[in-house]
Design a protein around this nucleic acid. Structure first.
Lengths: 208, 208
DNA sequence: CCTTTTATAGAACGAATGTACCACATTGTC
DNA sequence: GACAATGTGGTACATTCGTTCTATAAAAGG
């Protein structure tokens, strides 16, 4: 396994801060983070903290020790964006608790958008999901699942095509009908053992 | 020069810490408390913090800045002990929110001992309540009230005697019967307009 | 009264810590 | 490739801040 892409350290720092506060009840110092994240310079920590604050994900008071506060408001949930989804690339289904570790980004959402169950998000790459009215750059909110009720929007892995798409799901005997959200497009019929449900889509977010 | 009774500063400090954390999201320093409570030496603050920690009302980590944590556990309620009650001294009935300000002590109680309504406590001075089976040093848990149902234990102010006692309350037409908890003692009959209910007793705590 | 406990002051030491500055590596873009 | 944007290292300064020491006053106990 690897750490694809970009800024794992920054997410790591955020994760560490969260854990530190959870454990100790107060914020870590720059040097606490340094040790906790295996960074070898306070400047690096300072740099990432600056970015995190500029992004509004933490708050600090200048020259006040241990003044870092996470901006996870009460009634809000932080949803980890685990990576990107595109046709041809299987979704890296998360395993329980180390989600936020590998998250490349984080979303803050009001509680009512997510249920009680753990939720993750994926950024859509390319127009491959366009038939489900999902454009490039959109973010799909997902809930891990390996089955679905009829009519639910799911991310399915088509074994023969080696492709992932978002479709509305209908079971029909030993077959499965995948209906694009776009009505002008025809549904796809698949054998049940050819489709593998990756998760239920519980929301789509488009930032403009 | 000033300050009436005993240790209002210590309670004041605790109150200040609570407010500070509430406002800023992190603990105050010794010098924050110094300024916030009009104390003129860090040693004084240090002294009171030591006591508070020894009493288990706060937690600190040595040599770590802003590491004060309040030990108000979830599911517990902090009940202010407003003062002492003794025959002859009227109860200082609290007005809403500035209770904890004038509190001389604080009790931590499990939630089920108190209802949803605000509750305060009084320390009993002397044996004047002995006929209600309440000894010197006991603590009575009270809920502010100006009326009571028959059979409830209340703190009543007898106007003519200028005296406060704890008795079981029974209304009888325009008269009121005050029955000591101790059955061997005779009930007192009073005219209704002579008694003034200060609060209902909802519990007694005896520390041995 | 005298002694002990509790509370308040003032000052200072030294460690903890936010911050700034500089150099360098990596990556992305045109 | 060249240049900018981004991420990493190293170091050092100036405060911030916990802690300790000593002295004095006020209250409590006997």
């Amino acid at each position: 396994m690897r750490k694809i892409g970009l800024n794992s350290t920054r997410e790591n720092i955020l994760q560490f801060i969260h854990g530190f506060i959870d454990e100790r009840g107060y914020s870590p110092t720059v040097r606490d983070i340094l040790k906790g994240c295996d960074i070898s310079s306070t400047a690096v920590v300072q740099y990432h903290l600056d970015v995190l604050e500029k992004e509004g994900r933490i708050h600090r008071d200048p020259e006040i020790f241990r003044s870092i506060r996470l901006s996870e408001k009460k009634g809000s949930v932080m949803v980890p964006v685990l990576g990107t989804i595109a046709a041809g690339s299987p979704i890296p289904v998360p395993n329980s608790d180390n989600w936020s570790n590998q998250a490349v980004d984080t979303l803050e959402l009001p509680q009512d958008m997510v249920g009680k169950k753990p939720v993750f998000a994926l950024k859509v790459k390319g127009q491959s999901m366009i038939d489900a009215l999902i454009d490039d750059g959109d973010i799909v909110l997902m809930e891990a699942a390996d089955s679905a009720a009829n009519g639910e929007m799911v991310a399915v892995w088509l074994k023969d095509r080696e492709e992932v798409t978002l479709k509305r799901f209908f079971a029909d005997k030993d077959k499965v009908i995948l209906q694009p959200a776009n009505q002008t497009m025809k549904p796809i019929e698949q054998r049940a053992d050819n489709v593998e449900i990756q998760g239920k889509v519980i929301g789509v977010i488009r930032k403009l």
